[in-house]
Design a protein around this nucleic acid. Structure first.
Length: 389
DNA sequence: AAGGCGGGGTG
DNA sequence: CACCCAGCCTT
């Protein structure tokens, strides 16, 4: 079913050549990534959690800052969740950070502060699923567990010309078995990383570089010129479009108001983290008419601030609409319409908090909130420059 | 078994 | 720009 054993009796020699080809390629091309400097299970674990659904380039700076602040499991366990989220801010999938810290506390309380070696024990930790378990235990402890992530699944699917969808549970099982069978048990950590790195750099989702691929001679998809058709495209939930207006209040001291709970919009749009007051601009939002939301944004924000935040009536000239921003939240495509609002005093609000606008980009917030804060800071810097000139 | 959770890279 | 990517948890 899969090369190198496809259609023939399992041949030890072929399998050995297959493994040698990949390991030699990895030895030559292996990138010097921060988490590869270490075998500390904690370091590997943090890296693997950050790398879930997230590209290497995005992870590197977060990884280094995170370990600098939380050098040990014990340090992570005794920190505030808010600080952990602060260091995660911008990386997305914030539940990962919460689980990471919960697991750290569990490790300190139940496992003597060391990441468990036992697979069944480690698997019970929050945030440790089948993939992460195999990755951490193989890399940190040399356990012979085959990792199956998206990269490896794609490589295996191409090697074996598997046409069924990768997320199909039956296919998944088949691929997991195959990965386990191919695993080079001499150094499972290197093997898993070699496989993933091949998927990331050569056997890419689109336009795979088959000419550079050390495994091309074993690849059935390549042989059938199906490398661009396999794996089959995943059917994604249809996206929806959302338009939000967000108010960046600004008092004379440069302070702004953040809310702990959402305004009139879906809470997930700011990852349930602190956010600017915001409302969804309802209206006919079919394709092509989103432009109509822009004039409505200021009016609706103005009403919202008055009715629900108890802000006194403000003059129209206190409002300044900034250029629209785009943001994505899983299947939602969000257009953000930031509105800068000059106020004499920030309103009191039970869920509100006054903070210097300057500080907002460094707080535990979603990227959407950061984008809005940066847009506002840029606009303010621009207008003060104009005033000086 | 299916759906939800971010964000950024790529062609 | 539009399109693409994916591990874990909850329901």
């Amino acid at each position: 079913m899969f090369p190198p054993l496809a259609g023939r009796k399992p041949s030890g020699a072929t399998l050995a050549a297959f493994r040698r080809a990949l390991l030699q390629w990895f030895a030559a091309k292996r990138r010097a990534l921060p988490w590869r400097k270490s075998r500390d299970p904690y370091h590997i674990w943090v890296a693997e959690i950050m790398l879930q659904q997230t590209r290497i380039a995005a992870v590197i700076p977060y990884y280094e800052q995170f370990l600098e602040r939380f050098p040990t499991i014990a340090e992570l366990a005794r920190s505030d969740e808010a600080e952990v989220l602060g260091l995660w801010s911008g990386l997305g999938y914030y539940q990962r950070a919460r689980n990471l810290q919960r697991a750290a506390r569990e490790i300190v309380e139940l496992h003597g502060g060391k990441f468990p070696r036992d697979a069944e024990v480690a698997r019970t930790l929050p945030g440790i699923g089948v993939y992460t378990l195999a990755a951490v235990l193989s890399i940190a402890y040399g356990k012979p567990l085959a990792a199956l992530d998206g990269n490896i699944a794609r490589v295996l699917a191409r090697l074996g010309a598997v046409r069924s969808p990768l997320r199909d549970p039956q296919t998944r099982r088949k691929l997991q078995e195959e990965a386990q069978r191919l695993l080079a048990s001499g150094n499972p950590g290197d093997w898993n990383q070699a496989f993933m790195e091949l998927g990331e750099t050569v056997c890419t989702p689109r336009a795979p570089r088959c000419e550079e691929c050390p495994m091309a001679r074993w690849c059935r998809a390549r042989g059938m010129e199906l490398q661009n058709e396999i794996p089959t495209k995943r059917i994604l939930r249809e996206g929806i479009r959302v338009t939000l207006a967000a108010a960046v209040l600004c008092d004379p001291r440069g302070e702004t108001l953040l809310l702990r709970s959402p305004g009139r919009h879906d809470a997930v749009l700011f990852s349930r983290l602190r956010q600017f007051p915001a409302i969804e601009i309802i209206g006919d939002m079919r394709d092509g008419v989103r432009e109509e939301a822009k004039p409505r944004a200021t009016t609706q924000i103005r009403n919202y601030l008055r009715d629900e935040l108890g802000l006194p009536k403000l003059l129209k000239k206190s409002f300044r609409q900034l250029p629209a921003l785009r943001h994505a939240v899983t299947f939602r495509d969000v257009v953000l319409l930031p509105v800068l609002v000059r106020v004499a005093r920030l309103p009191r609000h039970s869920e509100g908090e006054a903070v210097p606008l300057q500080d907002v980009p460094h707080m535990p917030i979603s990227s959407a909130t950061r984008k809005i804060a940066r847009a506002a800071l840029t606009a303010l810097a621009g207008s003060s420059n104009q005033a000086r000139n």
